[in-house]
Amino acid sequence: MSFVEYLGRVRIRKGQELLQLSDKDLHLIAQETGFANDYYFSRKFKQIVGVPLTVYRKQPKRIAVLMPHATACLLAWGIVPVFGVVGLWMEPWLTAHYRERLDCSGFRQGEWYSDKTVQWLAANPPDLIMVYREEYTERLWEIAPVFTIPEECSDWREELLVLAAAVGRREQAERWLLLFDERALAVKNKLAVQRARGETFLIVKIVSGKCYVYSNMTSMGGCLIYDVLGLQPPPAVQRNMIEKGLLNIHVPLDDLPDYSADHIFLFHYHSHWPAAECEVLGSSVWRSLPAVKNGRVYESDPNVFYAYDPLAMEKQLDWLEEMVQSHFG
C-alpha cells in the first residue's frame, strides 16, 4: 500500500484504541489521530473499519487476551473474550466455574503468543488485543488495536484497576476491592496475637524435589499473605527478596534453615518420581525446621494459590479463613 494509505490505517487503529480505552469526545480523538475534523475522521473510520464510528463506540467489543491473568479477570467481570490464553492452573476449577455461569460458547482457548495464535487472530480480527509484553505489539497492531499493561503496575491492586478501566469495569473492580478488604480484615484481626508476637510465615513451593520460596508479589498467595493480611516474613525473605523486588528464588535444601519461620504455607506440586517426592519432605533438614517440628505447616491447593485474579483471591481467602479457624480459632 502507499504511504498515505498506511498512515491512514495507523491513525484509524489509534482511533479505535482511544474509542475503547478513553472517554474522550470524538473531536479530541480526531485531533489526536491527525484528522482535520470529526467528519473526515468518521468517514475514514467507516471506510476502514466497516461500521459507523458512533455504532462502533457503543457496540460490545470482541476482546482477545494473550495473558492468563487478564483472561481470568475479564471472566470475573462477566466479559467473555473471543480468544483467551488459559494457564494450566486455571483448569479445570476456574474455567469450570465460569462455564457454569457465563455463555462461553464463543470463547476460544488458545496458546501464548505464537504463529498459530497470530494466524487465528488475523483470520478472526477482534476489536482489542490485550498483552503484557510490548515487543509483541507491532505484529499484532496489524490485526487490531493493542492494549499493553503498563510496566509501572507494581502491585496486584493497581494492575487490577488498570485492566478494569480498559474494559469499562473500573467501578465494579473498586467495589470488589472494598468487599474483599472487609473480609480480609476480619481474617487479619483473628491473627492479631500471632502478628503481635512477631511470628513469621514462610511460603514454600516444592516442584520435583526443589524448593522455591516466595515473596509478597503476585503468586502463591504472596500478596494476600504478606500485604493484605500483614503477616511477617522471615528476615531472609525480607532482605533477599522483598527488598529486591523478586517474586521467588530457588533455595537449595541445605540453605532452607536460613529461611526458617514459625509457620509455613506449603504448596506441593506432586511429582511422578517418588525419589523427588521424598527428597525434601523426607529429609532431616525439612524435619528440623521449627514450623515442621511444631506442626505449623499448612498445605493447600497450589493451583488455587498460583493466580491473583478476583476468583482466585476469593478462594485463597476462603481457605485461609478456614485454616485460621481450625488452627488459631
Rank of each mutant, 00 (worst) to 15 (best):
L21G: 02
K205T: 15
V213L: 15
S260Y: 02
L53G: 00
P233F: 08
V80K: 05
L163F: 12
K293T: 14
S154T: 12
D254E: 15
F35P: 02
H97I: 00
E174Q: 10
G222W: 02
Y98H: 02
C104I: 03
N189V: 13
Q16K: 12
D309W: 01
H270F: 11
M90A: 14
Y98R: 00
V146G: 08
E17Y: 14
C104K: 04
P290Q: 09
Y39L: 08
A144S: 13
G34D: 11
K205L: 13
S271A: 08
H97C: 00
H272E: 12
D254W: 06
V118R: 04
A165S: 10
M313R: 09
R175P: 00
K44V: 11
A275I: 11
R139F: 00
L224E: 13
L178E: 15
A144G: 05
E32H: 07
V324K: 06
G209Q: 12
V51F: 05
K205S: 15
P235E: 13
S2D: 13
H27N: 06
K188P: 03
H97F: 14
Y39Q: 09
I149K: 01
A166T: 04
W89N: 13
E159A: 05
S284R: 03
N37Y: 07
D309I: 00
Y40N: 08
A192C: 05
D254Y: 11
P81I: 01
A96L: 03
A307P: 07
Q194H: 14
Q238V: 08
A307N: 12
A276N: 13
I29N: 03
L247N: 12
